[in-house]
Protein backbone atom coordinates (compact mmCIF):
# COMPACT_ATOMS: atom_id res chain seq x y z
CA UNK A 1 0.00 0.00 0.00
CA UNK A 2 2.78 2.39 0.84
CA UNK A 3 5.33 1.46 -1.81
CA UNK A 4 6.46 4.24 -4.17
CA UNK A 5 4.42 4.74 -7.37
CA UNK A 6 5.42 6.60 -10.52
CA UNK A 7 2.99 9.25 -11.68
CA UNK A 8 2.88 12.47 -13.73
CA UNK A 9 1.63 16.00 -13.28
CA UNK A 10 0.91 18.85 -15.67
CA UNK A 11 1.86 22.49 -15.44
CA UNK A 12 1.60 25.37 -17.93
CA UNK A 13 4.94 24.43 -19.53
CA UNK A 14 4.36 20.69 -19.97
CA UNK A 15 4.25 17.38 -18.12
CA UNK A 16 6.72 16.11 -15.53
CA UNK A 17 7.24 12.90 -13.57
CA UNK A 18 6.78 12.41 -9.84
CA UNK A 19 7.09 9.69 -7.22
CA UNK A 20 4.27 9.06 -4.76
CA UNK A 21 4.77 7.49 -1.35
CA UNK A 22 2.30 6.34 1.29
CA UNK A 23 -1.47 6.80 1.45
CA UNK A 24 -3.38 8.83 -1.14
CA UNK A 25 -5.75 10.18 1.52
CA UNK A 26 -5.23 12.85 4.15
CA UNK A 27 -2.68 15.68 4.32
CA UNK A 28 0.11 15.47 1.83
CA UNK A 29 3.80 16.35 1.87
CA UNK A 30 5.28 17.64 -1.36
CA UNK A 31 9.05 17.41 -1.11
CA UNK A 32 11.66 19.50 -2.92
CA UNK A 33 15.26 18.49 -3.49
CA UNK A 34 18.06 21.07 -3.56
CA UNK A 35 19.11 22.36 -6.96
CA UNK A 36 21.97 20.94 -9.06
CA UNK A 37 24.71 18.76 -7.54
CA UNK A 38 23.19 18.73 -4.06
CA UNK A 39 20.06 17.06 -5.51
CA UNK A 40 22.11 14.00 -6.47
CA UNK A 41 23.69 13.91 -3.04
CA UNK A 42 20.41 14.08 -1.08
CA UNK A 43 17.94 12.16 -3.25
CA UNK A 44 18.41 8.77 -1.55
CA UNK A 45 18.17 10.49 1.84
CA UNK A 46 14.97 12.37 0.97
CA UNK A 47 13.40 9.18 -0.39
CA UNK A 48 14.30 7.46 2.91
CA UNK A 49 12.57 10.32 4.76
CA UNK A 50 9.44 10.01 2.61
CA UNK A 51 9.32 6.23 3.15
CA UNK A 52 9.58 6.85 6.89
CA UNK A 53 6.72 9.37 6.63
CA UNK A 54 4.66 6.75 4.78
CA UNK A 55 5.35 4.40 7.70
CA UNK A 56 3.74 7.07 9.89
CA UNK A 57 0.67 7.21 7.67
CA UNK A 58 1.59 10.42 5.82
CA UNK A 59 1.46 10.40 2.03
CA UNK A 60 3.99 12.36 0.01
CA UNK A 61 5.05 13.33 -3.49
CA UNK A 62 8.56 13.93 -4.83
CA UNK A 63 8.20 15.75 -8.16
CA UNK A 64 10.79 16.21 -10.89
CA UNK A 65 10.60 19.94 -11.50
CA UNK A 66 11.17 21.25 -15.06
CA UNK A 67 14.89 21.01 -15.81
CA UNK A 68 15.62 18.55 -12.98
CA UNK A 69 15.60 14.75 -12.62
CA UNK A 70 13.92 12.99 -15.56
CA UNK A 71 12.55 16.25 -17.02
CA UNK A 72 12.90 16.72 -20.78
CA UNK A 73 13.69 20.41 -20.14
CA UNK A 74 17.45 20.91 -20.58
CA UNK A 75 19.43 22.17 -17.56
CA UNK A 76 20.46 25.27 -19.52
CA UNK A 77 16.73 26.08 -20.00
CA UNK A 78 15.97 25.71 -16.29
CA UNK A 79 14.37 28.90 -14.89
CA UNK A 80 13.50 29.72 -11.29
CA UNK A 81 9.97 31.04 -12.11
CA UNK A 82 9.22 27.76 -13.97
CA UNK A 83 10.27 25.66 -10.98
CA UNK A 84 7.97 27.74 -8.77
CA UNK A 85 5.07 27.62 -11.20
CA UNK A 86 5.32 23.86 -11.72
CA UNK A 87 5.50 23.25 -7.96
CA UNK A 88 2.46 25.51 -7.38
CA UNK A 89 0.52 23.79 -10.19
CA UNK A 90 1.18 20.35 -8.69
CA UNK A 91 0.13 21.51 -5.21
CA UNK A 92 -3.02 23.07 -6.74
CA UNK A 93 -4.18 19.71 -8.13
CA UNK A 94 -4.10 17.83 -4.83
CA UNK A 95 -7.21 19.20 -3.14
CA UNK A 96 -5.91 18.47 0.38
CA UNK A 97 -3.77 20.49 2.83
CA UNK A 98 -0.22 20.37 1.49
CA UNK A 99 2.96 20.75 3.52
CA UNK A 100 6.18 21.58 1.69
CA UNK A 101 9.32 19.76 2.87
CA UNK A 102 12.42 21.28 1.31
CA UNK A 103 16.11 20.53 1.67
CA UNK A 104 18.68 23.33 1.16
CA UNK A 105 17.98 25.40 -2.00
CA UNK A 106 14.72 23.48 -2.53
CA UNK A 107 13.38 26.15 -0.17
CA UNK A 108 13.64 28.70 -3.03
CA UNK A 109 10.92 26.92 -5.01
CA UNK A 110 7.79 26.80 -2.82
CA UNK A 111 6.92 30.52 -2.61
CA UNK A 112 4.10 30.63 -5.22
CA UNK A 113 2.18 27.61 -3.91
CA UNK A 114 -0.82 27.66 -1.59
CA UNK A 115 0.49 25.64 1.35
CA UNK A 116 -0.56 24.69 4.87
CA UNK A 117 3.07 25.05 5.94
CA UNK A 118 6.72 25.07 4.94
CA UNK A 119 9.32 22.81 6.62
CA UNK A 120 13.00 23.24 5.77
CA UNK A 121 16.21 21.35 6.40
CA UNK A 122 19.24 23.69 6.37
CA UNK A 123 17.69 26.13 3.87
CA UNK A 124 20.10 27.91 1.55
CA UNK A 125 19.66 31.32 -0.09
CA UNK A 126 20.22 31.85 -3.79
CA UNK A 127 23.22 34.05 -3.03
CA UNK A 128 24.90 31.31 -0.98
CA UNK A 129 24.10 28.77 -3.68
CA UNK A 130 25.77 31.01 -6.28
CA UNK A 131 28.84 31.31 -4.04
CA UNK A 132 29.02 27.50 -3.85
CA UNK A 133 28.59 27.18 -7.61
CA UNK A 134 31.31 29.71 -8.34
CA UNK A 135 33.70 28.06 -5.91
CA UNK A 136 33.06 24.64 -7.47
CA UNK A 137 33.68 26.12 -10.90
CA UNK A 138 36.89 27.77 -9.72
CA UNK A 139 38.05 24.45 -8.23
CA UNK A 140 37.24 22.48 -11.36
CA UNK A 141 40.23 20.95 -13.11
CA UNK A 142 38.48 21.27 -16.46
CA UNK A 143 36.93 24.74 -16.41
CA UNK A 144 34.57 25.56 -19.24
CA UNK A 145 32.95 28.91 -19.57
CA UNK A 146 29.33 28.08 -18.71
CA UNK A 147 29.80 24.87 -16.76
CA UNK A 148 29.23 24.51 -13.02
CA UNK A 149 30.37 20.98 -12.13
CA UNK A 150 28.80 19.67 -15.32
CA UNK A 151 25.70 21.87 -15.13
CA UNK A 152 25.28 24.36 -17.94
CA UNK A 153 23.34 27.26 -16.40
CA UNK A 154 21.82 30.30 -18.12
CA UNK A 155 22.68 33.89 -17.23
CA UNK A 156 18.96 34.43 -16.55
CA UNK A 157 18.91 31.69 -13.93
CA UNK A 158 22.09 32.93 -12.27
CA UNK A 159 20.66 36.47 -12.11
CA UNK A 160 17.39 35.17 -10.62
CA UNK A 161 19.27 33.17 -7.99
CA UNK A 162 21.34 36.15 -6.89
CA UNK A 163 18.49 37.71 -4.92
CA UNK A 164 16.37 34.62 -4.24
CA UNK A 165 15.67 33.91 -0.57
CA UNK A 166 13.45 31.19 0.92
CA UNK A 167 9.87 32.26 1.65
CA UNK A 168 9.22 32.48 5.40
CA UNK A 169 9.32 28.96 6.89
CA UNK A 170 6.88 27.51 9.41
CA UNK A 171 9.67 25.32 10.78
CA UNK A 172 13.40 25.27 10.12
CA UNK A 173 15.53 22.32 11.15
CA UNK A 174 19.34 22.20 11.05
CA UNK A 175 22.21 19.91 11.91
CA UNK A 176 23.86 20.26 15.32
CA UNK A 177 27.04 21.45 13.61
CA UNK A 178 25.27 24.50 12.10
CA UNK A 179 25.49 27.44 14.52
CA UNK A 180 22.78 29.56 12.86
CA UNK A 181 19.25 29.90 14.31
CA UNK A 182 16.85 26.96 13.99
CA UNK A 183 13.65 25.58 15.52
CA UNK A 184 15.35 22.23 16.16
CA UNK A 185 18.78 20.64 15.67
CA UNK A 186 19.68 17.01 15.05
CA UNK A 187 23.02 15.20 14.90
CA UNK A 188 24.23 14.16 11.47
CA UNK A 189 26.65 14.94 8.66
CA UNK A 190 25.78 17.38 5.83
CA UNK A 191 25.17 14.78 3.10
CA UNK A 192 24.65 17.60 0.56
CA UNK A 193 28.36 18.46 0.73
CA UNK A 194 29.71 14.91 0.55
CA UNK A 195 31.09 13.52 -2.68
CA UNK A 196 30.10 9.98 -1.55
CA UNK A 197 26.99 10.87 0.45
CA UNK A 198 25.07 7.60 0.73
CA UNK A 199 22.13 8.12 3.05
CA UNK A 200 21.59 8.34 6.81
CA UNK A 201 18.76 6.04 7.90
CA UNK A 202 18.78 7.25 11.52
CA UNK A 203 18.59 10.93 10.54
CA UNK A 204 15.87 10.20 7.95
CA UNK A 205 13.77 8.52 10.65
CA UNK A 206 14.31 11.36 13.15
CA UNK A 207 13.45 14.05 10.59
CA UNK A 208 10.34 12.14 9.46
CA UNK A 209 9.23 12.12 13.10
CA UNK A 210 9.87 15.88 13.29
CA UNK A 211 7.81 16.50 10.12
CA UNK A 212 4.98 14.24 11.33
CA UNK A 213 4.87 16.03 14.70
CA UNK A 214 4.90 19.41 13.00
CA UNK A 215 2.03 18.43 10.66
CA UNK A 216 0.02 17.17 13.65
CA UNK A 217 0.48 20.44 15.57
CA UNK A 218 -0.16 22.76 12.63
CA UNK A 219 -3.44 21.03 11.96
CA UNK A 220 -2.73 19.11 8.71
Amino acid sequence: MTGPRFDRYDWAGGREAMLRFGPDAGPRVVAVLPLFEEANRTRAFLVAMLRALAGRGIGSILPDLPGTGESVVETRDLRLPDLRQAFAALVGTLGVPVHAVAIRSGALVDCDASLAGRWRLAPQSGGDLLRDLNRIRAASTMPDEDGFAGNSLSATLLADLQDAVPYAASRTVKLESDPRPADARYPGAPLWRRSEPGSDAALAEVLAADVAGWIATCGG
Binding site: R131, N134, R135, A138, A139, S140, P179, R193, S195
Partner: peptide, 24 residues
Protein backbone atom coordinates in the same frame (compact mmCIF):
# COMPACT_ATOMS: atom_id res chain seq x y z
CA UNK B 1 39.13 11.76 -0.78
CA UNK B 2 40.24 15.39 -0.91
CA UNK B 3 39.83 16.17 -4.63
CA UNK B 4 39.22 19.68 -5.95
CA UNK B 5 35.43 19.39 -5.61
CA UNK B 6 35.84 18.21 -2.02
CA UNK B 7 38.15 21.16 -1.29
CA UNK B 8 35.31 23.51 -2.28
CA UNK B 9 32.91 21.64 0.03
CA UNK B 10 35.36 21.58 2.97
CA UNK B 11 36.01 25.32 2.75
CA UNK B 12 32.31 26.19 2.43
CA UNK B 13 31.43 23.97 5.39
CA UNK B 14 34.21 25.61 7.44
CA UNK B 15 32.75 29.01 6.57
CA UNK B 16 29.32 27.94 7.80
CA UNK B 17 30.50 26.33 11.05
CA UNK B 18 33.03 29.00 12.02
CA UNK B 19 31.04 31.98 10.72
CA UNK B 20 33.91 33.12 8.49
CA UNK B 21 34.26 34.16 4.84
CA UNK B 22 37.12 32.78 2.77
CA UNK B 23 37.94 34.82 -0.34
CA UNK B 24 38.92 32.91 -3.47
Amino acid sequence: ELDSMAVASVLTELEDRLGILIED
